[in-house]
């Protein structure tokens, strides 16, 4: 499980405190008003922002001081999830080896991952030649190969149309359940959260609250969330 013990994550002058536990294999939405600190939480867990106090642990291993690449974390950002000058096969291959030394066996796994996300035969294409949806698929193929126990999404599909976004979310849910990964996903749309997460962390007023069942939180929102959702 992922444990944040009295952790304070600093983002410039802003700080977010979190004291919570996410069970292994959970699917969790991170919801809350704009500027409340959703990205701060995710980037703190990924290691891009420093933990000023407290600690972060995964399966009882303290990861507070580990650099991002060493953490048990795969992450998708809002944009720039692929290197534009590398082919899809190379981009996905980075999930297996950060210095791109790939054995024939690795290359077969890269091809299989591309097949799995519906990009068969696109190995030699570059991101610039693909549509937004195809780029998302390629990034997900890399996430599959990274095979990290924690998958963090910082709204990577925000720029896609509604139908395509649902398709990607379903793919994420499938991949997470296949690999047994624990999913944390920032969400602005309640329907996204309901669709693939069972639990939700509310981030508001500089605090990340412990996860609660998604449906319950959205059906019965506290005032700060109700103002944000506008219902």
């Amino acid at each position: 499980m992922l444990k944040l013990e009295a952790a304070t994550i600093r983002n410039g002058t802003f700080t977010l405190s979190a004291d919570l536990i996410v069970p292994t294999g959970a699917t969790v939405a991170v919801i809350g008003p704009s500027g409340a600190g959703k990205s701060t939480l995710i980037e703190g867990i990924a290691g891009f922002l420093p933990t000023a106090q407290g600690r972060i642990a995964w399966q009882d291993t303290d990861i507070t001081d580990q650099p991002p690449g060493a953490r048990p974390v795969a992450m998708l950002f809002q944009e720039d999830n692929l290197f534009p000058h590398l082919t899809l096969a190379q981009n996905v291959g980075l999930g297996l080896s950060p210095n791109l030394r790939l054995s024939p066996d690795d290359k077969a796994r890269v091809r299989a991952a591309l097949n799995r996300v519906g990009l068969t035969g696109m190995d030699t294409r570059k991101p610039g030649e693909l549509s937004g949806g195809q780029r998302s698929r390629a990034a997900l193929a890399r996430v599959m190969l990274q095979d990290k126990p924690l998958l963090l999404l910082d709204e990577p599909f925000a720029a896609l149309g509604p139908a395509l976004r649902m398709e990607m979310l379903d793919l994420v849910a499938q991949i997470a359940s296949e690999t047994g990964a624990t999913l944390l996903m920032i969400s602005h749309a309640p329907e996204d959260a309901r669709r693939i997460t069972k639990q939700a962390i509310l981030v508001a007023d500089g605090t990340a609250h412990a996860p609660r069942p998604t449906g319950e939180l959205l059906d019965n929102p506290p005032p700060v969330l109700r103002d944000y959702l506008g219902s």
Partner: peptide, 25 residues
């Protein structure tokens, strides 16, 4: 600025980032 975080999250800090990202770009 644009791709450093992606590189870091893939564990490419140092030489791999230099060789596969910075120099080609």
């Amino acid at each position: 600025a644009r791709q450093g975080r992606l590189g870091l999250s893939l564990g490419m800090a140092g030489l791999p980032f230099l060789r596969h990202v910075l120099l080609p770009r």
